[in-house]
Design a protein around this nucleic acid. Structure first.
Lengths: 205, 205
DNA sequence: TGTACATCAGTGAACGCGCGTTCACTGATGTAC
DNA sequence: TGTACATCAGTGAACGCGCGTTCACTGATGTAC
């Protein structure tokens, strides 16, 4: 529990949380350091005790997001073992679930314009998430005859792209762009068809 | 040719062009009405002779983008006729080509946060683009046995999502997120695998 | 346990800035006769 | 063709605002003895 009084106790995290909430509500454009400080019940100047500035605060939010994301993906991957197919499909679902459950993080990570190479820690966290998907893809592609096996990184890039596209276009209530289908179904069926195309699931499955 | 002198001649379009350039260079966040006016060689106040304000200017840029986009898609669709497959693949390529060639428009359309339902004209232009892809998908799905044919709108949503994901993640030089493969190849191969999954191209093609 | 002092995490006032928007204006252009 | 006038498309100054950031400060907390 945060201590109360003059000293906040856990202002750093409170600022990140406020930033995430704000990003979620107003988009990356709408985020301001002053407003985040206000929501954390603190003067804008106080932010500078914990962050270098506006960008640094967003970057830290993204960093935490990549951490959560990678954890979720890893958990999903392992939950599907020992079936390579189940593990892969679980990571796909985890992607969408993350975007749904942590929209603020998702936006900070992918839409805020901060570079993943801003700090080594950030890059590392991002790579970890990417590596899970790539590993799942590599496992699965063992079941494809070697000569017609696409590189695992291409395989995972396809899935990443479709997942991201579904999130951006259909999972968010983007104003006016109504989803023709529930995003979960859309992603699940899209991945299913793709995997069939690789010969990884039976045609009539 | 625009007339020179006190009166600009074609300020309206010059402002839209300046806005597109600015959006392309700085992202939706970085766009300001004042800077756009400056680039068009005009006072910020002059903008109000042609637009209601900042939002309206972006919306108009997006509107023109949807128009160009729909035209390109239609052209691609027709250029592939009478083969449903060729027509479909051409629209996929046209999607990426548009994003490449008109990044400012693309960002205004999909990342600026303006609603597609802002005006009836904007909604109409957006629907026209969407309709082309859906038509191409519908044509193509005629070749799938009816009982295992997915709805054309789902089919087209999958392709739209993958295309958008490729653009956002790999086609832009998003800072630090290097593409593992050329975006064209990635999209082409992804769509190829997907179509194979639908039984629309031969497994060894 | 009590006191003196160092450290820490906030405050609050101030800054310069660029923003979007408004307004009365004026110079350029188009039109009537 | 020339003149008078209406319309139009800009100017430029001003506004209020919220922003990110800085600074000297001060109240709260932790530590040594």
């Amino acid at each position: 529990m945060p201590k109360r009084g003059y000293h906040h106790g856990n202002l750093r995290q409170a600022l990140i949380d406020a930033a995430l909430e704000l990003i979620e509500q107003r988009g990356p454009t709408g985020f301001t350091l002053s407003e985040a400080a206000k929501r954390a019940g603190v003067t804008p100047a106080a932010v500078y005790r914990h962050f270098e500035g506006r960008e640094d605060l967003i970057a830290e939010a993204a960093h935490q997001g990549y951490g959560i994301f990678a954890d979720l993906m890893e958990f999903a991957y392992e939950s599907g073992q020992p079936s390579a197919l189940k593990a892969f499909e679980a990571t796909g679902r985890a992607y969408l679930a993350f975007a749904r459950k942590h929209p603020g993080h998702y936006i900070a990570m992918f839409e805020s314009g901060i570079s993943v190479n801003r700090t080594p820690e950030l890059a590392h966290a991002a790579n970890r998430a990417n590596a899970v998907l790539e590993r799942a893809a590599a496992d699965l592609s063992q079941h494809i005859p070697e000569d017609k096996r696409p590189p695992a990184s291409m395989f995972s890039a396809h899935i990443w792209a479709m997942s991201h596209g579904v999130v951006e276009l259909f999972a968010r209530n983007s104003p006016g762009r109504a989803s023709p289908f529930p995003a979960d179904d859309l992603l699940e069926s899209g991945i299913g068809i793709y995997l069939r195309g690789l010969g990884l699931v039976r045609p009539d499955e």
